[in-house]
């Protein structure tokens, strides 16, 4: 059915632009937040509600090398999605469609996400809490 519909003959003619990258990263980060983020979030809460032992098994995984890779990746995906999500909401208001502006905000989504991720871990390790 869907296969028999006519397609544009120009679908394969395009090149990478930073605003395209923000778009596909919004999708990748959103879905990563659902399938890794929400699952781990629910497990964390369930473990805390169940017992000290259940929480210890969660903490063992969370504190493992793979766990740390996931936390760093998830924090980056979170700030990436947050930044491009805000960009979406701003563009919904009608602002930011001029080519130069759109490119500039898309670039800031990537830069901002990296800076926020770095800031998050800086506060995590050196901030006033968590010791």
């Amino acid at each position: 059915m869907a296969d028999s519909r006519p397609l544009s003959p120009h679908l394969s003619i395009w090149k990478w632009r930073v605003h395209m990258a923000t778009s596909i990263f919004h999708r990748i980060s959103g879905n990563a937040l659902v399938f890794a983020g929400l699952t781990l979030f629910a497990w964390w809460l369930a473990a805390a509600a169940t017992s000290k032992e259940a929480y210890a098994s969660f903490a063992a995984v969370a504190d493992s090398p793979i766990g740390w890779i996931v936390w760093v990746g998830l924090s980056w995906m979170f700030f990436q999605h947050l930044m491009s999500g805000i960009r979406h909401l701003i563009m919904d208001s009608g602002w930011g469609y001029a080519l130069g502006t759109s490119k500039m905000t898309a670039t800031w989504v990537f830069v901002g996400a990296i800076l926020l991720t770095a800031a998050f871990w800086a506060v995590f390790f050196f901030g006033p809490g968590l010791r």
């Binding site: 805390a48 929480y55 901030g127 809490g129 968590l130």
Partner: peptide, 11 residues
């Protein structure tokens, strides 16, 4: 980030 720790009793 402001929690003293992420232990079971703390959380």
């Amino acid at each position: 980030l402001m929690l003293p720790n992420l232990s079971h009793s703390g959380v």
